[in-house]
């Protein structure tokens, strides 16, 4: 299988662990991933104004690139995959918006008059989790596992962007289970926890870190009440907030327990034995190794 991959800015910067673990585990699953040629920033947030056109331009430019790449590569569908929840949400919402509003789309196409390809609503946006479930299959993934993550207790944190709004959600909005099912396929034990779709505070990381520390205390605290070894996420914003604000959370609440935060792709890379270079644990604030070693997995 061949697949176009959109990494996004953060996976090429602070979240390289997410990028390398995505690419190397896909290779183990016989999916040939090709990074999208000349991709640009998605804009990170979907502007909510009903008549907004300006903030749809960056996503549409990417959709044009996907269309061009798919057209010149044999066996390549007019779709692409991203593992970043934030990019997924922004690109998918822009795609839905321009498909629903032909006037908006024609304004954007006219604005992008130097492009040789016009966007006609003919590209599909997929998240990696969705792709793994629907195309690869969790049963096939389970067959490929070389080192089952036996005994590892994992809380899956979705945050906002994979489940809201309804139009972009590929699972239940209030109680998604797709990540738990993936974790189970890797041989680990998924553990449900109440705050798995509660917001981490997102971009308040920039100006109001005290809010993030409080959110981290609440969310990680809710996970650690379930006696888990670690939390997995699919968003580099959540990963940063929940990992890097743990010392501040500890200052707020002396009972706070430090716990590693990993991308679900890192657990895949671990179970598929992609090697240490595919994990990049050096980029974490809370080192995942001791928690994994306690289960004989490091």
């Amino acid at each position: 299988m061949k697949l176009i991959y959109y990494p996004g800015c953060t996976l090429k910067n602070s979240a390289r662990n997410f990028d390398v673990s995505t690419v190397s585990s896909m290779a183990e699953l016989d999916v040939e991933v090709e990074e999208l040629d000349r991709w640009n920033c998605c804009g990170t947030v979907h502007a909510l104004g009903a008549e907004n056109v300006m903030n749809r331009v960056a996503p549409v430019t990417n959709l044009i690139r996907v269309k061009e790449t798919a057209a010149k590569t044999e066996g390549m569908a007019s779709e692409f995959m991203t593992s970043c929840a934030m990019c997924y949400n922004t690109l998918k919402r822009a795609n839905i918006d321009v498909k629903k509003n032909p006037d908006k789309l024609s304004t954007i196409n006219n604005f992008l008059n130097l492009e040789t390809t016009k966007y006609e609503g003919d590209v599909e946006v997929r998240h990696l989790l969705e792709y793994l479930r629907d195309r690869v299959g969790f049963d096939k993934l389970a067959e490929k596992v070389k080192k089952p993550l036996t005994g590892l207790r994992v809380a899956c944190y979705y945050g906002c962007l994979l489940v809201r709004p309804k139009e972009v959600a590929f699972d239940d909005v209030e109680n998604p289970m797709i990540m738990e099912n993936l974790i189970a396929a890797l041989g680990a034990t998924p553990v449900n926890f109440p705050l798995k779709t509660e917001c981490c505070g997102a971009y308040h990381a920039v100006g109001k870190p005290e809010i993030i520390a409080d959110r981290t205390d609440k969310i990680m605290g809710s996970a650690s009440e379930q006696d888990v070894d670690l939390v997995v996420v699919s968003c580099p914003m959540c990963a940063y907030n929940l990992d890097f604000r743990q010392d501040d959370a500890k200052r707020l609440n002396p009972d706070f327990k430090h716990m590693p935060v990993l991308y679900f792709t890192q657990l895949m890379a671990l179970a598929l034995e992609c090697g240490d270079d595919a994990l990049r644990f050096d980029l974490h604030h809370i080192d995942p190794k001791p928690a994994l070693a306690a289960r004989d997995l490091a």
């Binding site: 990170t44 971009y203 920039v206």
Partner: peptide
């Protein structure tokens, strides 16, 4: 330098 690009861009877009 520590902040992920998505945090910076999102904050600037919203604020």
């Amino acid at each position: 330098a520590d902040l992920p690009p998505i945090a910076m861009i999102a904050a600037m877009r919203k604020l």
